[in-house]
């Protein structure tokens, strides 16, 4: 009871802070300096139609490399922590049902296609590597739901992930020598704004990120699914 009161008092403090922030907030009517820079320069400099993608992949590309590294670490630690929990032998389970099994067979290719579409078009439409990767991992999740005992090859997942990461860093280094700096997308021709083959290396890099993120999420899902039921 006392604990709950303390929690409520703490929440009241937070609520007061948030209320002050909310009441004191006035929306900007003009873009701020940073946003204005990106809005003015993206099309001419990088040739990407989606400005968020231009920021994530090129302007702040180094941060994205760090982000992908953090995600890789998370996936690796999940695998490591759960590594000793692999089941000796699987327990009998009730069948998951005709609907889910058939639905999975029907839906998985389409989900994979959607995931690839989302990351290949990351520089044109809302979406990109992270979203596409998450969609691909959702296909893996659906397969796991349909057959919880299904085994995914960790070697294959690790190979996809490492290769994607390797090519990502290689492209970044190519930017150092062929263009303006690390992860510069102008190592490939910029093309016409709004076309699929445009924006230099952004579609390539975002596709690699998509594969890497998809592999990382899939490896987390597979690790979590392979743990023994306690």
């Amino acid at each position: 009871m006392v604990k709950r009161l303390i929690a409520l008092a703490l929440l009241a403090v937070f609520g007061a802070v948030f209320a002050t922030l909310l009441l004191g907030y006035t929306p900007d009517s003009e873009l701020n300096l940073t946003a204005r820079y990106y809005a003015e320069r993206t099309a001419a400099e990088l040739g990407a139609a989606n400005i968020v993608t231009a920021i994530v992949v090129t302007y702040r590309g180094l941060d994205t490399l760090g982000e992908v590294t953090v995600l890789f670490l998370a996936a690796a630690i999940v695998g490591l922590v759960l590594a000793n929990s692999r089941p000796g032998q699987a327990r009998e389970r009730a069948p998951v049902g005709e609907l889910l099994t058939t639905g999975t067979r029907f839906l998985v290719p389409m989900i994979l296609l959607l995931g690839v579409y989302v990351f290949v078009n990351g520089h044109l439409t809302p979406g990109g590597g992270f979203q596409g990767g998450a969609i691909i991992a959702s296909a893996v999740l659906l397969m796991l739901l349909a057959n919880p005992l299904r085994h995914f090859s960790h070697n294959l997942i690790a190979a996809i992930e490492s290769l994607a990461g390797l090519f990502y860093v290689t492209l970044g280094l190519a930017g150092l020598f062929l263009a303006g700096g690390f992860l510069d997308n102008r190592i490939l021709p910029l093309g016409n704004l709004g076309e699929l083959i445009s924006a230099g290396a952004i579609p390539v890099i975002y596709s690699l990120i998509g594969l890497k993120v998809g592999a990382e999420f899939s490896s987390m899902l597979a690790s979590l699914a392979e743990t023994e039921e306690l």
Binding site: V56, T64, E67, A74, I77, F130, S223, L224
Partner: peptide, 26 residues
């Protein structure tokens, strides 16, 4: 257009949030 910077930030935050959730579950 609206400010693209917060959207890029949230894109990062969502992905890292998912990684953290997976770690907590493990």
């Amino acid at each position: 257009i609206i400010d693209p910077v917060p959207q890029a930030l949230v894109l990062t935050a969502i992905v890292i949030g998912l990684g953290v959730t997976a770690l907590m579950l493990a």
